[in-house]
């Protein structure tokens, strides 16, 4: 199975240099350097507590970094609230626990941000929302509340909700790890489809099959540092550092 790399351009989507972050005294991210090009699909893996979530949450400022710089789509993340809101509206994020808005229907979940942030008229926002719900294959659930959907359906709504903002970059934080096995596939399929359409994606995941199939690059983190990165084939066949080897042996179960 050969995947297409034609999507990757020379344009830089995310540029992180010498980025450091502390939680109080705890040095959670250390000297992170990462360049993501438009159209690139990146999988981040690593043991629990290694700082994967924190890293991608820094990219849309859900966490604040203390040193170094993060430039997203040419805009640097500083304390300037305008920049932050701008970047957030262009970077979509999907969470492990879906975080849908339970008091709104599926459709309202999807139209809310376009209408309030982009000031899209309701009619147009609804059309976009239905289009995205078709894409994740649950248009028939549009008028239900999140509490009435299965986990896999909720996660696909969450993806659709992000897509409605027409983001240029998508962040996924372990989006399948709260799901039952039979629902994982439907969510992964949606993500694969997105990847094939050329979306710039950073996915924190332990689904190594997914990494093999869609990733252009796999990044391994441990102790708040990027320990190793490589193309998936190389990464899985010839891991370089001992920490990576240990991690892979644990996760692949031999």
């Amino acid at each position: 199975m050969e995947k297409t790399k034609i999507n990757i351009t020379d344009e830089i989507a995310i540029h992180i240099s010498d980025m450091n972050k502390w939680f109080g005294n705890f040095h959670v991210l250390r000297d992170i350097n990462l360049e993501v090009r438009r159209g690139e699909r990146i999988v981040v893996c690593g043991p629990s507590g290694s700082g994967k979530s924190t890293l991608i949450r820094c990219i849309n400022r859900l966490e604040e970094h203390q040193k170094g710089s993060i430039i997203v789509d040419g805009t640097e993340l500083t304390t300037d609230l305008k920049n932050i809101d701008k970047i957030r509206s262009e970077v979509g994020m999907v969470f492990q626990h879906f975080n849908l808005f339970p008091h709104l229907t599926t459709l309202e979940n999807c139209t809310l941000a376009p209408m309030w942030v982009r000031e899209t008229p309701e009619k147009e926002a609804t059309e976009i929302a239905m289009e995205m719900l078709e894409k994740v294959k649950i248009p028939e659930q549009a008028h239900k509340y999140p509490g009435q959907l299965s986990g896999g359906q909720q996660q696909r709504v969450a993806i659709a909700r992000s897509l409605c903002m027409k983001p240029r970059i998508m962040l996924f934080d372990e989006v399948t790890s709260a799901l039952d096995p039979e629902m994982i596939k439907e969510v992964l399929d949606t993500m694969i489809q997105l990847a094939e359409e050329g979306m710039t994606m950073i996915c924190v995941t332990h689904e190594m099959g997914f990494a093999r199939q869609v990733a252009d690059r796999v990044i391994f983190m441990d102790d708040g540092q990027i320990v190793e990165q490589n193309e998936p084939e190389e990464f899985f066949k010839y891991p370089q550092s001992n920490r990576t080897k240990l991690f892979l042996s644990q996760i692949l179960g031999h």
């Binding site: 509206s89 626990h97 879906f98 975080n99 339970p102 809310l112 309030w116 942030v117 992000s162």
Partner: peptide, 26 residues
């Protein structure tokens, strides 16, 4: 849950928008 704040922030809603549309109603 904290996730509600994070989800609305990640969609680009401002503080007051997210209070009014997401947080306060719930």
């Amino acid at each position: 849950p904290l996730g509600q704040h994070e989800a609305s922030a990640s969609l680009g809603l401002t503080y007051w928008q997210s209070q009014r549309l997401i947080i306060m109603p719930q």
